[in-house]
Amino acid sequence: MSQEALKVRTMAEVAAAGESVEVLFWVGCAGSFDQRAQKITKAFVKILNHAGVSFAVLGEEESCTGDPARRAGNEFLFQMMALQNIQTFDSYGVKKIVTACPHCFNMLKNEYPELGGNYEVLHHTAFLQSLIDEGRLKLKDGGKFKGQRITFHDSCYLGRANGIYEAPRELIRKLDAELVEMKRCKSSGLCCGAGGAQMWKEDEPGNKRINIERSEEALGTRPGVIASACPFCMTMLSDGVKNKEKEEEVAVKDVAELIAEAEDL
């Protein structure tokens, strides 16, 4: 991997220079702070840099969308975060947003419009696919993942909530990889266990952790890579694969990381 410095500007810097950008990259809390998810953020930025996309981030001005608060029942906190973020978007005249987090994506796309925040919102897999379709991102033939067995885990908030099943799969196919499906996939996909604010608390008593159940299913496809498109699924599946002591043989990677690696970015 090359170590070229990442070219990232904030919306404040762009506005101060009197410029504008094509798209706002909403990094999300996981993408900003979680060490594993930061790698996804960097991989996505490398692709954006490589494709010459003009974008900016909010940096310090970004705040939680309010997803875990709302799903845990705290509507007040959610409304506060939403209103604050909408004010920030509107102060920069934001029109188009891309994010690598399906939870943020769902909030911005489906739950902000009712509160007055109307933007074109894209998940990074759909955005990457559009870059390829428009010829702005060209993938090499026969990259690193050629012929590898890759299984894709559907994030609930990307799949069931927003019907995005094909964009991430198309990207995996473009790597000349062999896409293998789990039995529970697409609209029947099994949750990783993180959604609905479960990420922030211990499980209720039961006989198994959800992420172990899902990781076992993913490992059952004998993959070289388990691909995901959500930073929370990433945490859950990585933990599951480690629990099964398979982390040496099976990598858990975000679709953006697969593309960045295949392109030697």
Binding site: C156, G196, K201, D203, E204, I210
Partner: peptide, 9 residues
Amino acid sequence: LDACTTCQA
């Protein structure tokens, strides 16, 4: 209630 992941399955 606390155990729901809101996965919509």
